[in-house]
Structures are given as structure tokens and as C-alpha cells.
């Protein structure tokens, strides 16, 4: 018997969060305020995402948690354990087997399907914050659809770097209405957001929830003469040889040797099980 209610939060709180989620789904990209609860982990550890997950989890769910694409980082492991203990639910690292996936900074490579929910941890939900610190003003800009400022940010990028250098948290326009911060996923992941699964975004410290129903139109902002490009490192994965997955550059030895590997560890492992090998793979070299 656990000391907690199922998934830690009391039913009252979960109902309040579910109402915020439903409102978010009804108005895609709109930031719905909610009364964030103290969680037994510090802000910055995904308390917003954890509360959203807690509100949507059912006993029959299977949970996967990733941090930067990996299932085995401290943050991912501790959140997974948290729900194992407080909800006694099944957990997995396999994207295809999960019904709920909580993520920080990535969308899995394997396309998500109908019936799955992707929960994002969001540090700063307001895409306009960078140039307009006044909350009263940003709220008005959203209400009146005044988004010129978002392009000022991209303009500044190009004027400084010669191209749009924003690589993470690349702003999108949702369902032709709200401009939304997709959380710090790489812009490589932006096109995946038009997906079959439900996407929920939770910001704990800022007390905001927003959402995308399946197959919502998600357009990355750009200029006619500087179009959006979902770029990634121009390499195949050193371990599985994938050409189409987002890569991390990792240091592999004391001599400063580097290689590029899939940031999605489950995807990479699955490909290797299927017999794919990259040029840095020891089994391949052997």
C-alpha cells in the first residue's frame, strides 16, 4: 500500500489540471493558467510535466520518460521511479510500447500514434518573453494576434548571424492562430509536431499548460528569403548509421575523440537490434 493517492496528486488537483488540459486542447497553443502544486522535486526538474502526467495517467498506462532523448539520465530515471512508486504503473523505454511519454527537449524519432500522449516539460512558456518582459503586454499581443515581435527576434538572428540561428525552442504558429514556444526541443523536431498523438505542455514554475490536439497545423515562423530549415548535424549516427535522426556529438575517449550518435537512445538501440551498424560501432569494426 502506498502513502500517496494514485500518481501522488489528490483527485481534486488532478481534476483541476485536467480541466486546464481540456481547455488547452480546445484552444490549441493557448497558455492556460493553472494552480501549480509543490512537487517533491525542485523546479527545473520538470514539475510542470510531472503534474500533467499525473493528471492523465491511468493504472493501465505504460510510461516512458526521456531527457534529451535518453531514458537513462538522472532526471528521466527519477521521474520514472517517482511514478512507479506513486502509481505502480508499467514503465518502458520502448517508444512504441508507451501510452504516455514525458519528455524534456526531444520528440522521439519513431512516429507517435493515435492513443499516445506526449507530455513536454516547459521552462518558459511565453515565446514573446525575450523581447517583451511585461506579462500584461504579451497577453494582449496573444489576444489581438499581434505577433510582429516574434519576427523581430528572427530578424535580429539573421542580422547577427547571417541566418536564423535559433536552434532550440523555435517559435511556431499553431492552427493559424496562437504563436507557441515548443519548449527547448531542437528545431529538427518541429515538423514532427503535426502528429497523431496528443501533445501536452506543462510549465510548473510559470503555472501554464498548453496543448496540441492530433494533427494540429504547426508552422515554424520564418521569412520568405530565409525559410525555416529543420537542420541537424550532417552525419550518420556512429552507432546505428541512421541518416534521419537527430544526433548528439559525444566525446568517446581521453584523447578527445568524438562521434555523432542518435540522441534518441531507444531508436538507436532498436536499429542496432535490427542489424544496422554505424562506422564507429565496435561490433562493425570488429
Amino acid at each position: 500500500m502506498s502513502d500517496y493517492n494514485f500518481a501522488y496528486l489528490d483527485e481534486q488537483t488532478k481534476r483541476m489540471i485536467r480541466r486546464a488540459i481540456l481547455k488547452g486542447l480546445a484552444i490549441p497553443g493557448y497558455q492556460v493558467p493553472f494552480a501549480s502544486r509543490e512537487m517533491p522535486m525542485p523546479y527545473g526538474w520538470g514539475t510542470g510535466g510531472v503534474q500533467v502526467s499525473a493528471a492523465v495517467l491511468c493504472p493501465e498506462d505504460t510510461l516512458k520518460v526521456i531527457d534529451q532523448g535518453a531514458d537513462d539520465t538522472t532526471n528521466a530515471v527519477s521521474i520514472r521511479r517517482f511514478f512507479e512508486r506513486t502509481a505502480q504503473i508499467a514503465v518502458t523505454t520502448a517508444t512504441a510500447d508507451a501510452t504516455v511519454i514525458q519528455t524534456r527537449h526531444r520528440i522521439p524519432e519513431e512516429p507517435l500514434r493515435d492513443g499516445q500522449i506526449l507530455v513536454y516539460q516547459v521552462p518558459i512558456p511565453e515565446p514573446l518573453r525575450f523581447l517583451e518582459p511585461r506579462e500584461s503586454e504579451t497577453r494582449k499581443m496573444h489576444a489581438l494576434e499581434e505577433y510582429g515581435l516574434m519576427h523581430v527576434k528572427l530578424y535580429e538572428d539573421i542580422s547577427r548571424h547571417g541566418h536564423i540561428a535559433t536552434a532550440y525552442a523555435y517559435p511556431v504558429k499553431v492552427a493559424d492562430r496562437y504563436v507557441m514556444d515548443p519548449s527547448p526541443i531542437p528545431k529538427f523536431d518541429n515538423p514532427k509536431m503535426e502528429m497523431a498523438a496528443i501533445q501536452l505542455f506543462g510549465a510548473g514554475r510559470e503555472q501554464r499548460i498548453y496543448a496540441l490536439p492530433p494533427f494540429t497545423r504547426v508552422v515554424s515562423l520564418d521569412f520568405e528569403d530565409h525559410p525555416f530549415v529543420a537542420s541537424k548535424a550532417d552525419h550518420p549516427c556512429g552507432l546505428c548509421g541512421a541518416q534521419d535522426s537527430y544526433l548528439d556529438e559525444v566525446i568517446v575517449d581521453d584523447a578527445g575523440g568524438r562521434m555523432f550518435v542518435c540522441s534518441d537512445t531507444d531508436y538507436c538501440a532498436g536499429r542496432q537490434v535490427d542489424g544496422h551498424r554505424g562506422s564507429d560501432n565496435k561490433e562493425y569494426a570488429a
Partner: peptide, 19 residues
């Protein structure tokens, strides 16, 4: 924001999308 961004803001606010 740079001088250019300051001048360009009103243009972008009314829909200019060519850098």
C-alpha cells in the same frame, strides 16, 4: 534590439515577411 530591428518592427507588425 538593433537599429534595423527597431525600424523594421512596424513593417513586420503589418505583415512584412521578406528579410
Amino acid at each position: 534590439v538593433s537599429a534595423g530591428g527597431n525600424v523594421g518592427e512596424r513593417l513586420m507588425a503589418v505583415g512584412a515577411r521578406n528579410y
